[in-house]
């Protein structure tokens, strides 16, 4: 996702002279092309994320389209006050791009995990929250964000994730979920970098004769309410899947929607991370296995819930 972001950003920078890139001293070489073409519109803001976010807001309030980028906790929780007050309160069109969402950087330990950011950011007025499911969704989200006149948060995984879409998504729309695989028994609503696990779960379910629809629910705020209505009306089980805390994340947003709209539904499961820091050493695959977030574990729990 990371390389797709840098590449799409360079293209956007060529097309639109308002695009400015701010990085928090990470992404060695990642932005070389952007820097080459637009040296006056690239800033390494150092290890000073609060300042970076304030600077981005100031630029956006004066006609520019800044993109502020670093590792997820540092571009969200580290500068939350600046996001809330400088960016969102002013409705400044800053695009915040985070790398290493959820447990993507599991091996770096809890200081680098990010399982609370959706919760914090979606509670701030004026903020849009997008969690792309693959590299093409990253490209679509970034392009769509630039066409908005408001703050947008894009939560990416890392690099080298499986690519799910076959090519560029022509009609990527903020707030419009994308059906990846059609199904008839259960519906898996996945957000962000869990999409490959959701697809894997669907395949495991198919082996057991259960037909699963897989949806990349890339926008957590605003929710695609039409999609939710259809899903809860049609399927005997709906599950939300995310690499984020069950508190305040995508599943929580859907629960709130269910309660607020008094939507009748059958079974509803939420997959996400627990209310605990993941302290063990180990990479993302290991962390997912321990937390029951791999495709086969998701499938098993769904089968259990259906019985």
């Amino acid at each position: 996702m990371r390389n797709a972001f840098a590449d799409e950003l360079t293209k956007l920078g060529n097309e639109d002279s308002r695009v400015v890139m701010l990085s928090g001293d990470i992404g060695n070489r990642l932005f070389d092309k952007f820097k080459d073409k637009h040296p006056s519109r690239f800033f390494n803001c150092g290890v000073a994320e609060a300042n970076m976010m304030g600077v981005a807001a100031g630029m956006a309030m004066n006609g520019l389209r800044p993109v502020a980028y670093t590792i997820t906790p540092f571009v969200t929780t580290r500068c939350l006050e600046q996001i809330r007050t400088d960016v969102c309160y002013h409705e400044a069109p800053v695009t915040i791009v985070a790398v290493g969402a959820g447990l993507a950087y599991s091996g770096l330990g809890p200081t680098h995990h990010a399982c609370e950011d959706i919760s914090f950011l979606r509670s701030i007025p004026n903020m849009v929250v997008i969690c792309p499911g693959d590299a093409f969704e990253v490209r679509g989200a970034l392009r769509a964000a630039m066409q908005q006149d408001r703050p947008v948060y894009i939560r990416m995984g890392k690099k080298g994730e499986p690519v799910v879409h076959k090519g560029p998504i022509a009609d990527f729309k903020i707030g419009k979920a994308i059906t990846i695989e059609e199904g008839s028994d259960v519906c898996l609503l996945s957000t962000g970098n869990m999409l490959p696990e959701a697809i894997e779960a669907a395949h495991k379910l198919k082996e057991k004769g259960i037909s699963a629809e897989v949806v990349s629910f890339h926008t957590v705020k605003p929710l695609d309410e039409d999609k939710l209505k259809q899903a809860f009306a049609r399927f005997k089980l709906v599950a939300t899947i995310e690499e984020h805390s069950l508190i305040g994340g995508f599943g929580a947003a859907v629960s709130e929607w269910l309660a607020d709209t008094e939507t009748q539904h059958k079974k509803f499961l939420r997959f996400g991370t627990p209310d605990a820091f993941f302290k063990k050493s180990g990479e993302q695959e290991y962390a997912r296995e321990v937390l029951g977030l791999t495709g086969h574990q998701i499938a098993d729990k769904i089968i259990h819930a259906l019985n």
């Binding site: 906790p73 330990g109 200081t111 302290k279 050493s281 180990g282 990479e283």
Partner: peptide, 28 residues
Amino acid sequence: TYCQDGGRLAEHPPANLLPGVEAATGSL
């Protein structure tokens, strides 16, 4: 066990896990 699955030695010093580590750091 540094960086190995399930160990105490992740890539940054942990909180309340390893004797001698006074504080979890990694966020500068």
